[in-house]
Simulated scan of single mutants.
Amino acid sequence: MLELKGDERLDYLLAERLRIIQSPSVFSFSLDAVLLSKFVRVPIQKGHLIDLCAGNGVIPLLLSTRTKGKITGVEIQERLFDMAQRSVEFNGLSEQINMVHGDIKDLPNKIGFRNFDVVTCNPPYFSTPSDEEINQNEHYAIARHEILCTLEDVVRVSSKLLRQGGKAAFVHRPGRLMDILSLMREYRLEPKRLQFVYPKEGKEANAILVEGIKDGSPDLKILPPLVVYNDKHEYNQEIRRILYGEE
């Protein structure tokens, strides 16, 4: 029987027949994570996938509906790792998803180099601010700010984990676009697909989705924009399809 701790709740995972443990005081997944899980191209029948900075396991859970491959999720915060582990067990996915509690910077030495076909990451978006500016909730501060890992850490480790020809996919903020593209090239992850996400028509983009190939040839494709809300502040058709499976 599933044990919920503190203010945890068991939510439906959107369009999928899955449930996920969430907590308003610890962690709840964002739309960015869902978009990344749908954006990345994955092998259907087999392969090895890994999600870095996995939080409560939302991306590994969603990826399990798109591939029969083995999935690893890595999370440094013990409380979030525990939530993810219990969600995986509750959904009967322990044979497919393996959650790892640890620091991504140590991963290649612990689990090996060039062993994965796909790496995904929804990393901390913001550089570490002063103590006065940072979120006083430790869980949210670590998830949002580059306290325990930087963007360069994420890209460097992703490259080390990927086999040649493997794919790395990230979601980030548009203001870090040049950082992420230059780091990907520096660490041999050639950017191949880029999509901008907009909150509404006429607004500035507030997220980017980018996928690269380890040692790929230069050929970046800009995908059609993804607009989240219409003028009535309702989800657009494509977002409804992604979130709820609606056509």
Rank of each mutant, 00 (worst) to 15 (best):
A169E: 03
D179E: 14
V210L: 11
L194S: 02
V118R: 03
I59V: 15
N206I: 03
R185C: 13
A143S: 12
G175H: 10
E95Y: 09
D103Y: 03
E78D: 06
S159Y: 01
Y198N: 04
I242F: 08
D131N: 08
K203E: 07
K68F: 06
R114V: 01
P43D: 02
I180M: 14
S182H: 09
F39W: 03
H139N: 13
F81H: 13
K110H: 05
M99V: 07
D231M: 06
K221S: 04
P174A: 00
M83N: 05
L18V: 09
A169W: 01
E78Q: 11
V100T: 06
V119C: 12
S30K: 05
G55M: 07
L4W: 10
R41I: 05
M83W: 07
Q45F: 10
R193A: 01
K70L: 14
I147H: 01
M1D: 01
L226V: 02
I97E: 15
L148D: 00
N98M: 12
I180W: 10
V34S: 07
D117H: 15
S23L: 01
M99F: 11
G57T: 03
I76H: 06
E234A: 08
A15F: 04
V118K: 02
S94K: 15
I59C: 14
A84Q: 11
S182V: 04
L209S: 05
I71D: 09
F39D: 04
V227D: 03
D231G: 00
P218D: 00
H48Y: 15
R176F: 10
K203A: 09
G112Y: 07
V26M: 03
Q45L: 15
L107T: 04
R188D: 15
V40W: 04
T150Y: 05
F29W: 13
F196S: 07
K214T: 02
L14E: 07
G55F: 08
P218A: 00
V227A: 04
T72Q: 14
P124N: 00
K200S: 08
Q164M: 08
G245N: 02
H48R: 15
A168E: 01
L220C: 02
Q45N: 13
S94Y: 05
R188C: 11
D51P: 12
E3F: 05
K46Q: 13
P191T: 00
Y12Q: 04
A207Q: 13
Y244Q: 04
S94N: 09
L61F: 14
I21P: 15
Q22N: 04
P108Q: 00
T120E: 07
E146A: 05
E152N: 03
P224E: 00
G55D: 07
L148C: 03
